[in-house]
């Protein structure tokens, strides 16, 4: 018998479960609040032993800013990728780039890799076993060092501030 130490081991997960439940039901009736609330408490308690320790969000405001920045970059990414695809002369300048990671936690590295895939011209292709190098494939890149600096300034440093600092 697993004895939960706390009623709400992962408050963020509980909130997320409740929101997802209400969205799935597409209703805010009292019954759905109750059922969703029960699920939001029971599921984290049962699954707690399986979870790795999650990094804490230290600066929620920066996370919100990061979210909107990525959203904007996704739109730009789409326009740029469309341009490369539709270019009749097919003048892409693809490259493999080895990106040196500063982040250490698995979760933050995952977030960075996903962000890189969703933003202009880059897909994260491979994470080396040592967890220190991320291999990125870029669709159309001029200066490789410039790109690395750009990713570092725009995405990695905010993530580091939000989760790890």
């Amino acid at each position: 018998m697993i004895r939960p130490r706390k009623w709400l081991p992962m408050p963020l997960l509980s909130v997320l479960l409740l929101v997802v439940w209400l969205l799935l039901m597409n209703s805010v009736a009292l019954g759905h609040w109750l059922l969703g609330g029960v699920l939001a408490i029971v599921i984290p308690v049962i699954t707690e032993p399986f979870w790795e320790a999650q990094p804490r969000v230290k600066k929620p405001f920066l996370l919100v800013r990061y979210f909107f920045r990525v959203l904007l970059d996704i739109i730009i990414a789409n326009l740029e990728a469309s341009k490369v695809i539709l270019d009749p002369r097919g003048r892409a300048r693809p490259a493999f780039v080895e990106y040196p990671l500063e982040l250490q936690e698995n979760f933050t590295i995952t977030m960075l890799a996903s962000t890189i895939t969703l933003t202009p011209g880059t897909v994260s292709a491979h994470l080396r076993m040592d967890g220190k190098t991320l291999l990125i494939h870029a669709l159309d890149v001029g200066d490789i060092d410039d790109m690395i600096r750009h990713i570092h300034e725009r995405y990695e440093r905010p993530l580091k501030e939000i989760f790890e600092c």
Binding site: I74, I85, L86, P94, H137, L139
Partner: peptide, 25 residues
């Protein structure tokens, strides 16, 4: 455009860009 990218790009890694980004938007 994302689907066009599948046919117009030259190698596998470049083809990956189309579906992963453009179809998302």
């Amino acid at each position: 455009i994302g689907s066009l990218g599948l046919t117009r790009m030259k190698d596998f890694y470049m083809r990956l860009h189309g579906p992963s980004k453009i179809s998302t938007l």
